[in-house]
């Protein structure tokens, strides 16, 4: 029942049930632990990854359905933390506990792909990930900054 997943440009052969949520295959089979578990029911966004450029909640998707798709996790965003979103996140010192931030950053990256200059209303509509530490204020500023950095 092994299957193959393309994650961060690498083909991984996975030995797990196809119906295992993608989240657990990423974390436990492949070892990419930057993607976090928060609710398991598609509500919190801690498990967000990019699939063909769209933000998806990996706890709610069977791994088998990700076969043949291009998956990007936080580890694959840049080799050295230099993606504009990561730079902006550091500039505004966004994370507190940090647990939700992989998901926040990837959701922001997907937003910036679609709307290179997002308005506050765009941010409100797209950034639906929960942050229990309440870092929203800085996430908003960092997204605007990341948009500016991308434009340069």
């Amino acid at each position: 029942m092994a299957f193959t997943l393309l994650v961060n440009g690498v083909q991984y052969s996975v030995d797990a049930e196809q119906e295992t949520p993608l989240l657990w295959v990423l974390r436990d089979s492949i070892g990419l632990t930057g993607t976090k578990y928060g609710c398991g029911i598609g509500q919190c966004g801690a498990c967000t990854v990019l699939m063909d450029g769209n933000a998806v909640r990996s706890c709610f998707m069977q791994a088998g359905r990700a076969v043949g798709r291009k998956i990007t996790t936080i580890e694959g965003l840049s080799p050295d933390g230099s993606h504009p979103a990561q730079l902006a996140w550091k500039e505004f010192d966004v994370p507190q506990c940090g647990y939700c931030q992989s998901g926040q950053i990837l959701t922001a990256v997907a937003l910036l792909e679609k709307k290179p200059k997002p308005t506050d209303a765009d941010i409100d509509a797209q950034m639906t990930n929960a942050c229990r530490c309440g870092t929203y204020h800085r996430i908003r500023q960092a997204i605007h900054r990341a948009a500016a950095l991308r434009g340069q």
Partner: peptide, 17 residues
């Protein structure tokens, strides 16, 4: 610790292998 928390590298208890 912020640089580690934007790359997914920060290790939380849940990440131990």
């Amino acid at each position: 610790d912020v640089p580690l928390k934007v790359t997914g590298e920060a290790i939380y208890g849940i990440d131990i292998r």
